[in-house]
């Protein structure tokens, strides 16, 4: 129950932040507005109010916590168990994103796929390497030569025929 209540409080705080901080700072208002309902911030304010209301409801009447489907649950121990995998998954994604200008998408795609397969326990190397290398190459050829979408190659741009 506590975790659900905390989730509700989080939603409530998020709603309040959107209403009082994000909307005033993020929405430019025109000099004059014909009707209040036409103002650019009218709709976002209604949405923020709904989020606040849902946050209140979740805090006041939290949902019953059911058996954890997500392994490890939401407790601190569970999160500690999940942390290495989470760090690997998110670290890989962000590393891929930041490497695109330098190395393009194909080579980082191969390395990422193989790395994740090995991390997840794949030990049949020929199969792993073939799939990890083959999928980005196939996608590259599809997008470049079938769909005419230039997939970046970074420093390997010289290889493009």
């Amino acid at each position: 129950m506590t975790r659900e209540r905390l989730t509700g409080a989080g939603v409530l705080i998020l709603g309040l932040l959107i209403f009082f901080l994000l909307i005033p700072r993020g929405i430019d208002k025109p000099g004059s507005v014909e009707h209040a309902a036409l103002a650019p911030d009218f709709w976002p304010k209604i949405i923020a109010a709904i989020i606040i209301l849902m946050g209140l409801l979740l805090t006041v009447k939290p949902a019953e916590e059911e058996d954890e489907e997500i392994e490890g649950g939401g407790d601190a121990g569970g999160w500690l168990q999940r942390l290495p995998g989470l760090a690997v998954a998110l670290g890989t994604l962000f590393a891929f994103y930041f490497l695109i200008p330098l190395l393009g998408m194909v080579v980082p795609g191969m390395v990422m796929a193989l790395g994740l397969m090995v991390y997840a326990g794949e030990r049949r190397w020929p199969r792993g390497i073939a799939i990890a290398a083959g999928v980005p190459i196939l996608l590259y050829f599809f997008f470049v030569y079938v769909a005419s979408i230039p997939i970046p190659l970074g420093v390997f741009e010289i290889l493009r025929g």
């Binding site: 989470l86 690997v88 998954a89 991390y119 997840a120």
Partner: peptide
């Protein structure tokens, strides 16, 4: 992401 956070 969920898959990689579980006991694989």
């Amino acid at each position: 992401i969920h898959y990689f956070t579980q006991r694989l």
